[in-house]
């Protein structure tokens, strides 16, 4: 029997990953359509309408909920595709949709008032006033909190708004306010806000440069590694830059977020749900990470101490972990 200590919300980049997440103990999975309406629009990922309908049915049979992410910002003149995605999510029987754009929230509220709306992290609602605005205008039922907040901030927000919240528990550390970062389009011309891809693979180049490997995004060199060092993926906020004559990871290091050690604090703060990131990751990743968190949550519910911190290191970005902004010194 699964515990209900915290709701475990898991990534399903493909139908196979959805099955893996359900099997590993997800309470909820989230997925998107195979187009630019969701923020993980990578080749070979996501669901068409038939797959979505089947995925929702499969999850529901196993007592698991499905959230559909439609969290990019529609381009002017092209809103129809986003409206279609909202209509399709409703038709597929999704339990909720995750949205960020004000115009799209308005559309969903008017057309599908009965379909639960969650506010995406891409809306960057990091304070009580913003959350109240979205609740008053669009009756959102849950907010996915930005990764820039400390545990104290999270607790205070929940206290002020009495809103259901979902926080990131495992995945990447995003130092910038999400949905409002134009670094990737500045370097590639392709916009994560509309196209749903940050640091698109089509623009990534690894170059042999004397005794090292250079990683580039478009024509911009984001890092240099010696040949025995693992070459991290060139994401603009996780590159090495030179400022004041010193070269460093100025924004953030290539390091993964893992909050498994602070689950009791998140629970005490009043958090409702934990989000595992990684719709672009493998089925093996989904099984391992979801399984580890499932066990941790069940142990905590049973009053058992947990020792899960080292278990996921190989799954973390750059093979290293941090609890990110949750601890105050981070900023």
């Amino acid at each position: 029997m699964r515990s209900s200590y915290l709701e475990l919300v898991c990534p399903a980049g493909t139908p196979a990953a959805l099955h893996a997440a359900v099997a590993a103990g997800a309470d909820t999975v989230y997925c998107g359509f195979r187009d630019c309406t969701n923020a993980r629009n990578y080749p070979g990922l996501n669901f068409d309408m038939d797959e979505m309908t089947a995925g929702v049915a499969y999850a529901h049979e196993h007592g698991c909920k499905v959230l559909v992410t439609i969290n990019t910002f529609p381009r002017a003149g092209q809103e129809k595709s986003w409206h279609q995605a909202v209509d399709n999510a409703a038709m597929a029987g999704a339990d909720a949709i995750i949205l960020a754009d004000i115009g799209l929230l308005d559309y969903a509220t008017r057309r599908h008032p009965g379909l639960r709306r969650h506010l995406s992290v891409q809306a960057s609602a990091a304070n009580a006033l913003s959350i109240l605005f979205y609740r008053e205008h669009f009756d959102i039922k849950r907010v996915v909190l930005p990764r820039v907040l400390s545990i104290e901030d999270v607790a205070s927000l929940i206290q002020q708004t009495e809103m259901e919240t979902e926080v990131f528990a495992f995945g990447s550390v995003g130092p910038m306010s999400e949905g409002r970062c134009f670094l990737s389009s500045y370097m590639t011309g392709l916009s994560p806000t509309h196209e749903g891809v940050c640091a698109p693979a089509s623009h990534v180049v690894y170059q042999d440069d004397n005794h090292c490997i250079k990683s580039c995004l478009g024509s911009v060199t984001l890092n240099k590694f010696s040949k025995d060092e693992p070459a991290a993926y060139p994401t603009p906020c996780k590159g090495r830059y030179e400022a004041n004559g010193r070269t460093s990871y100025l924004f953030e290091e290539p390091i993964g977020l893992n909050a498994v050690d602070i689950l009791p604090q998140l629970k005490a703060a009043g958090v409702t749900a934990l989000k595992i990131e990684g719709r672009q990751r493998s089925r093996a990743y989904v099984s391992k990470v979801v399984g580890t968190f499932r066990k941790a949550l069940d142990d905590l519910a049973a009053g058992t101490q947990i020792h899960a911190s080292g278990d996921l290191k190989t799954m973390a970005e750059g093979g290293r972990e941090t609890s990110g902004a949750y601890k105050k010194g981070w900023r």
Binding site: A126, V148, L149, P175, M176, S177, R180, C181, F182, L183, Y186, C237, A243, N244, R246, S248, L250, F251, E252, A325, W330, R331
Partner: peptide, 13 residues
Amino acid sequence: LSVAMRCYHARAH
């Protein structure tokens, strides 16, 4: 191009 909670100027120093 972006806003953050973290201060990069401070980090650079």
